[in-house]
Amino acid sequence: MTEKQGQITGKPQTRDRAAEVELAVSRWLRAGVAISGAVILAGLIYFILRGDSGYPEGAYPTALSDIVTGVAALKPFALMMAGLFLLILTPVLRVAISLFVFLAEKDYLYVLLTSFVLLTLVISFFLP
């Protein structure tokens, strides 16, 4: 099949669109890792400068509400935990972006499967 015939069927355009989406997703993933790393590093530097974690010995925030409260109070360990939480959210963002890509492509089987995966991930954040 010649390139001209492929353009009539739209297959090269589909591949180009998929490549664009993958490039955009990879940029989001890199940005997510960079931002989470910066937040962790800021918390670590603040911990070193302050000399304590901001929590009593052996205590640390594990619940999302505790992390948010600790970040608002500028507690170093909470900042590091927030960075780790952002790092965990990065692949979840990838799943969410995939959902919208499959919706745009009208690939409803993958929309259903991706929705299930995303829902499972979101629910897992709220389980003890």
Rank of each mutant, 00 (worst) to 15 (best):
A73H: 03
P76N: 06
F100E: 00
L23R: 15
K4V: 03
S98G: 09
A72Y: 04
A78P: 02
A96S: 09
E3I: 08
S124V: 04
L99Y: 00
L29H: 09
I35A: 14
I8W: 08
E57Q: 07
G51H: 12
A96K: 00
L64A: 10
K11W: 14
T69M: 10
L84Y: 06
R15K: 15
R50E: 12
L23T: 13
L121G: 03
L74Q: 12
F100P: 01
Y55M: 14
V122K: 05
S36N: 02
F116R: 01
L86N: 06
E22D: 11
I67G: 01
L64G: 05
S65W: 08
L112V: 13
L112I: 07
R17W: 09
T90V: 09
T2R: 05
L121N: 07
V92I: 12
K11T: 12
L121T: 02
I8D: 06
S98T: 01
D66Q: 15
L103E: 01
I45M: 09
L121Q: 01
V39L: 12
L112F: 15
L44S: 13
L89N: 03
L49E: 05
P128N: 13
P76A: 09
V101Q: 02
Y108F: 15
D16Y: 04
A73R: 14
A72R: 11
A59E: 14
I97L: 11
A34K: 04
G43S: 10
K11Y: 14
R30T: 06
G10R: 05
T9N: 03
I45C: 07
L127H: 08
M81F: 03
Y46M: 14
P56D: 12
S65A: 04
L113K: 03
A34W: 06
T14N: 13
L79K: 02
F125V: 08
P91K: 11
Y55A: 09
R94M: 05
A38S: 05
Y108N: 08
A59Y: 13
T14M: 15
I67Q: 00
S98Q: 05
T120Y: 12
G51Q: 10
A18W: 10
T90P: 00
Y55D: 10
Y110N: 11
L49R: 13
R15Y: 10
E20K: 13
Y108R: 14
Q7P: 01
L121S: 05
S65I: 07
W28G: 00
A24C: 10
D16H: 11
F126A: 15
L89A: 11
F102V: 00
F77L: 04
